[in-house]
Amino acid sequence: MEIETVKPEIKTTVHRRRREIWMERLFLFAAWVTLLLTISVLLAILSKLFADGLTRINWQFLTSFPSRRPEMAGIFSAWVGTLYVMVLTAAIALPLGIGAAVYLEEFSHRNWFARLVELNISNLAGIPAIIYGLLGLQVFVRWFRMGESVLAGACTLAIMSLPVIIVASREALRAVPNPIREAALALGATKWQTVRDHVLPLALPGILTGTILALSRAIGEAAPLVTIGALTFVAFLPKSPLDSFTVLPIQAYNWVSRPQHEFHRNAAAALIVLLALLLLMNSIAIYLRNRYQQRWRI
């Protein structure tokens, strides 16, 4: 009698357990399918790009200006423009970013201003790139009368990448152990001397890593520069920061939006060059990060 009442319970437990195991397998299967799909999309993007564009890359392509005829066209003005904008962006964003991070980490008290800035930074990081483009168009191109120039583009990209640079720099500063500050202060150094001579040099590799990653994000982005009026057909190299310019992603966009297949090949080739540049920057960032970790062990 007793056995008979227990039996169905055992049955349902076994049944449940079995269902449980199947559900777990189903979940793991779904997760793996999703991951495989994601990785295959990544591979599909790269193989499509290289299949279309790799054979188009040659010396002529790298050293020619854009042209109406696809086989004569090249990306000389685009890659020079990209490098120019990038260097200028770094020159503007790095001091501002480090300054803001040092202020927030080392000098500010936990007051309303620090909280306001923090709130602002997390909000700014979520604003679409094209809105920064409109800001650049209005403030730098019109109000500061920079025109549709390399300088206006660099200012726009600098403002756009600042939030990321500040967050990365703050993390790097926070990683510097406190005894280093205390030792310097105990020897009579002022707060700024401590930061300048001891904290900043130790945090610099981390700061540079974050900055390079932020810059590589910024130069791959075409939207803000389209808005401030970077051109799509530039048959000269920018000589001063006030010259007009184009960059690789905009040149690629221009070619992709034409109907002829030959221009699509050009776009693919331009994008390969852009990817190579991004890869180079990311490698430098990873190299710096590894060196930085080694320094801490000593």
Binding site: T38, L42, K48, E221, A252, L275
Partner: peptide, 17 residues
């Protein structure tokens, strides 16, 4: 890596693939 790919390249992939 997916987040680091330039959006023009995503556009190229969407339109032509």
């Amino acid at each position: 890596v997916l987040a680091g790919i330039p959006s023009v390249l995503y556009g190229y992939f969407a339109l032509l693939f």
